[in-house]
């Protein structure tokens, strides 16, 4: 077959015309990258999946990169993404300090950077959408106080706090918020133990040993519902029945909700993932177009959220959900997997 320059030119024009007639191409606003810390639990992969769905509605294509919990890898990913010149980069940081040089490089290249779920306070960002892990820790503290008061008639008792990885900023921040509430009640004693790499068997063993050494433990607060199954397994092996020891988690993971349904766990303090994700989608056009965001109170999926101007940029704080047996099946909880069918509209 004799292929001439004219034939190639014609084919190229035809291809461009065909692509231009495709509505997705016509409406495409460009690529956005979402750098998640890990896929080990469902929170970040689900966040990314829902974000992709919301951003698709407003014409952006989302690409997700998983740092497998390695801060150096995440920094490399960020460096690579900057070269691809995306419309924006969303970051859920493995480490909120280690990522800063990469963020500053992206900003210097004119690419807006958004922090998701994990606050980065040491550099200026274009937007932050968080539940506030510190706040979730405080809510968990309040719930602990309430549960102990209901059980013992007074605010006293012994609590086993099973953290996540001791180097994980989520767990550290959660623990700080929880400690703030506990220090106000010296008659509550708290034993804190880590779970390196959030490995559930370790959490189960911690509970098993502590129940023998401290048989008077009233409540176990594990930082993620991800650990619930292993901890409950140890309670069961120790001959406990549902409700013998109070349990709560600090992220509203499906594992914790399953234990609430089974009666072993009383409370989960969940991150409002859908609202956090939606908040990003609802301000993205403004951020990409470098328009200012107006501070104030906004309703995001029915949750009263505060947008404030902080030293690190506009910060949207969305309150965490308290999950109990009464509302465990509510679709608002991300762990129930019912993505809200909402139309993304500009927030302001």
């Amino acid at each position: 077959m004799n292929i001439t320059r004219r034939t190639i030119g014609g084919l190229a024009l035809g291809a461009i015309a065909a692509l231009a007639s495709n509505p997705a191409f016509a409406e495409g606003k460009g690529k956005v990258y979402f750098l998640i810390p890990d896929s080990g639990g469902p929170f970040y992969p689900t966040s990314a999946k829902v974000e992709a769905k919301f951003l698709e509605q407003i014409g952006y294509e989302l690409t997700v990169l998983d740092a497998t919990n390695k801060s150096d890898l995440q920094l490399n990913q960020l460096d690579n993404v900057i070269n691809l010149k995306p419309k924006a980069i969303i970051v859920a940081a493995v480490d909120y300090d280690a990522i800063v040089p990469g963020i500053e490089k992206a900003k210097a290249a004119g690419i807006p950077v958004i922090a998701f779920d994990r606050e980065i306070k040491s550099t200026k960002l274009d937007f932050t959408s968080v539940a506030g892990t510190l706040e979730i820790g405080r809510i968990a503290g309040d719930e602990t106080i309430r549960l102990l008061k209901e059980r013992k008639g007074a605010i006293k008792g012994k609590v086993l706090q099973i953290m996540g990885d001791p180097g994980d900023s989520y767990s550290i921040s959660l623990g700080k918020g929880f400690a703030e509430k506990m220090t106000a009640h010296p008659e509550i004693s708290v034993i804190t133990k880590p779970t390196p790499q959030w490995e559930p068997t370790t959490a189960g063993s911690t509970a098993q040993d502590q129940l023998l050494a401290n048989p008077d433990i009233d409540l176990i607060f594990y930082h993620s519902g991800y650990l619930a199954s292993a901890v409950v397994g140890s309670l069961e092996a120790a001959g406990k029945k549902p409700g013998d020891i109070l349990c709560l988690d600090g992220d509203g993971d499906p594992g914790g909700l399953a234990q609430i349904r089974a009666g072993w766990q009383q409370v989960a303090v969940g991150a409002p993932m859908y609202a956090q994700v939606l908040a990003v989608a609802e301000v993205l056009d403004q951020i990409v177009n470098h328009q200012p965001l107006k501070a104030g109170t906004y309703q995001i999926l029915g949750l009263k959220s505060e947008l404030t101007e902080e030293a690190w940029g506009p910060n949207m704080k969305i309150p965490g959900n308290v999950v109990t047996k009464a509302n465990v099946d509510d679709p608002v909880h991300w762990a129930n997997g019912k993505v809200p069918d909402v139309k993304v509209t500009p927030l302001m």
């Binding site: 080990g40 490995e199 559930p200 068997t201 189960g204 292993a230 409950v232 397994g233 594992g255």
Partner: peptide, 10 residues
């Protein structure tokens, strides 16, 4: 033992 499995188990 853990009454289930997680991706980072073990």
């Amino acid at each position: 033992r853990t009454s289930g499995a997680t991706p980072n188990l073990g």
